[in-house]
Design a protein around this nucleic acid. Structure first.
Lengths: 143, 143
DNA sequence: CGCATCATGAAAGTGATTTTCACTAACATA
DNA sequence: TATGTTAGTGAAAATCACTTTCATGATGCG
């Protein structure tokens, strides 16, 4: 899985005439081996431990590049920070966001997707993307 | 409708030991008589025409107060600005957001709401709120 | 290796709030 | 009605989370 995504990214870099750098490889490895839904800040802090000389701007720019290459997706969960989640090929999912501990749980529901398409059709609307988030307390936080 | 919301707000103000001020009344009237999904900036500009001495910070603080009192709700549609929409009692709706012209169309779908509850239940999750937005092109922008 | 390009890091800049602060206005209470 | 206490206001400064700039450093094709 990691290898596939690394290849996708390197192919993208090459195709765009960009360069392969030590920093990009380090950030890519850190991103792929970390939690889904990481913010720039979180990834930056995680990296600083082992690579104190990597700048915030580089992490920011590289994450954008990941999104462009298709291995990551930008997300907003209302906490004011942009988060990047891993993208598997073709898959789509929505989220349960715990307002207690901040946990983000993914789920898929085909029926909901179908109904969304019906709603859009009824309004003559052409869907490009959608976003469904359920905010509340996870099983642990309901305590 | 306006009268009901004004009462709700004034009751809230009183209950919290806050004060009723000229500015709050002006902002409340402007909010209630305007488009749904207004940004702070938009409301501020609209107000400046008739009341050039009302500050941005006051509009910002008052809108927050509206949200706390329950007559408005904060929303993010990915354009980097917080928007406030009117809240009717008990009602809930979701949005179609046109990426072409920025139009925001509301819709309701009971079946989707029900399915959301099922998903939450399956994860032991207690829903507080949710957010469903379909991004794409509206009938007009599809051309 | 040479060098045209792209990349990086530190720091400055942005845009949208959010907070601070000195000054007012509300609303009991005298 | 005059006061005192407390909340509210507006202008300006401060935050926050990016985003861009710029001088310097890598890359990698020829």
């Amino acid at each position: 899985m990691k290898r596939v995504k690394k290849k996708i990214f390197h192919d993208y870099i090459a195709k765009q005439g960009l360069k392969s750098t030590r920093q990009r490889d380090i950030i890519l490895e850190a991103f792929l081996s970390s939690d889904r839904h990481l913010s720039i800040e979180e990834l930056y802090l995680k990296l600083r431990a082992k690579h104190p000389n990597i700048g915030y701007a580089t992490v920011y720019r590289t994450l954008k590049l990941f999104a462009e290459s298709g291995i990551a997706r930008e997300m907003q969960f209302g906490d004011g920070q942009t988060r990047y989640e891993h993208v598997g090929e073709g898959e789509h999912h929505d989220h349960l966001v715990c307002t207690g501990c901040g946990a983000i749980i993914e789920f898929e529901n085909e029926t909901i997707e179908t109904l969304q398409k019906e709603v859009a059709a009824a309004h003559g609307f052409l869907i490009q993307t959608h976003k469904l988030e359920l905010y509340g307390l996870c099983a642990r936080c309901r305590g």
